[in-house]
């Protein structure tokens, strides 16, 4: 496996996508076609990306670690950091036109769509993972605690995970 090709395949997938799961279709096609990864490794990497700290997109680091060890993980981390720097250019342009009410309208409209879309996508994953009353209660309590800021969000997640491990594993 050529490291240069490996880096380019990862960078290309990130460069021509947006969001944490955006690079999935391109990476899946290239990694499977090149025989670098299996379906099982993709599933594992996506699960790990949901629980580890940092952005969801770090599932790519997990995948590259599983298929190419530490050098692969470091290369993918570098490839993940580079494309978002385009935002500096976006902001430069925005600063010159942000006084136009239309521009603010576009940004606010996009934020509303993203929020709605994100909740629906996560709700879909939640539903497909096998929903029940206990899980619904955990989700509702977590939402209330996070919104009221009374309990650290890390504590919420730790308690939820421990609860599942102790009472749901039988």
């Amino acid at each position: 496996m050529s490291w240069f090709l490996f880096f380019w395949v990862v960078l290309k997938a990130i460069l021509f996508s947006t969001g944490g799961f955006g690079p999935l279709p391109a990476l899946h096609a290239d990694f499977i076609a090149n025989g670098w990864a299996t379906e099982q490794q993709f599933a594992e990497a996506l699960s790990i990306g949901q629980i580890t700290p940092g952005p969801n997109g770090l599932w790519v680091v997990s995948l590259c670690y599983l298929v190419a060890g530490i050098p692969g993980a470091i290369m993918s981390a570098i490839a993940l950091i580079m494309p978002p720097f385009f935002v500096v250019l976006v902001q430069y342009c925005y600063a010159r036109i942000n006084h136009i009410s239309t521009i603010q309208g576009i940004l606010d409209g996009v934020v509303l769509v993203i929020s709605s879309f994100t909740v629906i996508v996560l709700a879909g994953v939640f539903k497909n993972s096998g929903i029940d009353v206990t899980l619904l209660i955990i989700a509702a309590v977590s939402a209330i605690l996070a919104a009221t800021r009374r309990v650290s969000v890390n504590l919420i997640l730790i308690v939820a995970a421990l609860f599942g491990a102790m009472f749901g594993g039988q």
Binding site: S47, Q50, I51, T118, V119, L122, A123, V125, F126, S129, G130, T134, L135, L136, I138, A139, A140, V141, S142, A143, I144, L145, A146, A147, V153, I156, L157, V159, A160, A161, L162, F163, G164, A165, M166, F167, G168, G169
Partner: peptide, 18 residues
Amino acid sequence: EVQSGLRTAFAAIFGVSL
């Protein structure tokens, strides 16, 4: 136990995302 812990953790993640 790991699978179950992940499911309840994801329920909490969904709540936090709301």
